Amino acid sequence: MSSNDFVYVTHVRTTPERLWQALTEPEFTTRYWGVAFDTDWTPGSPMAWAEGGATTAAPGQEVLEYDPPRRLSYTWHTFTPEWAARAGVAEDVLAKLAAEPRSKVRFELEPAGDAVKLTVVHDGFPDGSTAREMVSEGWPALLSSLKSLLETGEPLS
């Protein structure tokens, strides 16, 4: 791992199968993330991100690894003007994001007693990355909402 990698570890009181569903099935992802992935989950297959009534699809957005319920990896979405408008990202920030190489995210699930240890590794960031700074704030909130959904039935607001 590089010092630019973002790594987050949490334990979720659920089964690996249920956590896997929460990471891949739109019925779950839309509840805690607001995103539905359009893909067949075959490594090499394209991924489209549907959120906020719009879809982000571009070459390079693809599934890298799919090994249920242990490992899932895919490239991060393309930073488009449409995405930036929906997310409230300023044009100067979008320009910085668009100039960076595409990053990727990996989820590792390991049984841990009556819980699952979830490790998220988001990597591929250059030094001084704007995207790295943004995901380091976004992942903790997102994963807390995922944990709340699986443990209580309700995501964070």
Rank of each mutant, 00 (worst) to 15 (best):
residue 18 R to E: 09
residue 6 F to P: 03
residue 83 W to N: 04
residue 117 K to G: 01
residue 122 H to M: 07
residue 7 V to A: 08
residue 83 W to G: 04
residue 56 T to H: 01
residue 138 G to N: 07
residue 1 M to Y: 12
residue 79 F to R: 05
residue 39 T to H: 07
residue 156 L to V: 10
residue 108 E to G: 07
residue 102 R to T: 11
residue 96 K to L: 10
residue 7 V to F: 05
residue 68 P to H: 11
residue 85 A to G: 07
residue 18 R to L: 15
residue 58 A to C: 08
residue 88 G to V: 14
residue 10 T to K: 08
residue 40 D to A: 04
residue 17 E to C: 07
residue 28 F to P: 00
residue 99 A to Q: 03
residue 126 P to A: 05
residue 139 W to H: 06
residue 32 Y to S: 00
residue 76 W to K: 00
residue 54 A to Q: 15
residue 138 G to S: 11
residue 133 E to F: 06
residue 91 E to G: 08
residue 119 T to C: 01
residue 82 E to W: 10
residue 68 P to E: 10
residue 109 L to K: 00
residue 97 L to C: 07
residue 106 R to L: 11
residue 120 V to Y: 01
residue 143 L to D: 02
residue 121 V to N: 04
residue 110 E to K: 15
residue 79 F to I: 02
residue 56 T to S: 01
residue 140 P to D: 07
residue 17 E to A: 14
residue 152 T to N: 01
residue 21 Q to P: 03
residue 57 A to N: 06
residue 149 L to I: 05
residue 118 L to Y: 03
residue 71 R to L: 14
residue 133 E to M: 09
residue 151 E to T: 14
residue 21 Q to W: 05
residue 145 S to W: 07
residue 15 T to C: 02
residue 52 G to P: 02
residue 49 W to D: 06
residue 78 T to E: 15
residue 5 D to S: 10
residue 120 V to H: 08
residue 22 A to W: 05
residue 1 M to G: 13
residue 147 K to F: 08
residue 93 V to E: 11
residue 79 F to Q: 02
residue 7 V to C: 00
residue 55 T to F: 02
residue 53 G to C: 12
residue 43 P to C: 10
residue 155 P to Y: 03
residue 150 L to R: 00
residue 80 T to R: 11
residue 71 R to S: 12
residue 7 V to S: 02
residue 57 A to E: 15
residue 16 P to I: 11
residue 124 G to V: 12
residue 108 E to H: 14
residue 50 A to C: 12
residue 128 G to H: 09
residue 30 T to S: 10
residue 80 T to A: 13
residue 136 S to F: 04
residue 149 L to M: 13
residue 45 S to G: 13
residue 109 L to T: 00
residue 98 A to V: 03
residue 94 L to Y: 07
residue 134 M to I: 15
residue 153 G to H: 06
residue 98 A to Y: 11
residue 77 H to Y: 12
residue 80 T to I: 08
residue 92 D to A: 13
residue 6 F to G: 02
residue 123 D to Y: 12
residue 67 D to M: 02
residue 145 S to H: 13
residue 59 P to K: 03
residue 129 S to D: 05
residue 8 Y to A: 11
residue 8 Y to H: 15
residue 142 L to V: 05
residue 104 K to Q: 09
residue 46 P to W: 00
residue 10 T to D: 10
residue 77 H to K: 14
residue 152 T to R: 09
residue 96 K to P: 04
residue 149 L to A: 01
residue 24 T to E: 03
residue 28 F to A: 09
residue 138 G to R: 11
residue 137 E to W: 08
residue 77 H to W: 15
residue 75 T to K: 01
residue 20 W to N: 05
residue 116 V to P: 00
residue 138 G to Y: 09
residue 93 V to R: 12
residue 62 E to R: 13
residue 153 G to N: 08
residue 80 T to C: 15
